[in-house]
């Protein structure tokens, strides 16, 4: 039983670390800020998730289960918020888009003086 748990934990940790490694490669490879933010959510979902699950499987103990569930909940709750905030701050800072980007519905919708954002579909109905 212990050997089976060790093998499962080892496979999970290796899979998670491969995803983390690919995230860092993507961080260097991707051409603009927006695709970089897309890539980094991979590290915090599957990468950290798989490694933490592997740890919990290996220790096989209630205290460790509680802590790993807490870590996964914290990471899954906070990482979308932080990447969303970085992305919006980057957009307002004027980060340039990749030249092959197909469409930008957000262009001209921000009103920085009044700090407001218009609805894209209002314009079409006029």
């Amino acid at each position: 039983m212990n050997l089976v748990l060790e093998i499962i934990a080892g496979i999970l940790i290796v899979a998670g670390s491969i995803f983390i490694f690919l995230t860092a490669v993507g961080l260097v490879k991707m051409p603009d800020l927006y695709t970089r933010v897309s890539v980094t959510t991979k590290a915090s979902t599957l990468g950290v998730g798989l490694v933490i699950v592997g740890t919990a499987v290996f220790f096989h103990d209630l205290a460790v289960y509680a802590r790993s569930i807490l870590i996964v909940i914290f990471v899954f709750m906070t990482s979308p918020v932080s990447s969303h905030m970085i992305g919006r701050a980057g957009y307002l800072d004027g980060a340039s888009l990749w030249e092959k980007t197909k469409a930008n519905h957000l262009e001209g919708q921000y009103d920085l003086k009044n700090k407001s954002l218009k609805n894209y579909y209002d314009k079409k109905e006029d």
């Binding site: 998670g16 995230t23 950290v48 980057g90």
Partner: peptide, 17 residues
């Protein structure tokens, strides 16, 4: 600066793992 913050964020989530 935003690119640098993204890199920092990634580094801390790597630290957790």
């Amino acid at each position: 600066i935003a690119d640098r913050i993204v890199a920092l964020d990634t580094m801390t989530s790597i630290g957790i793992a």
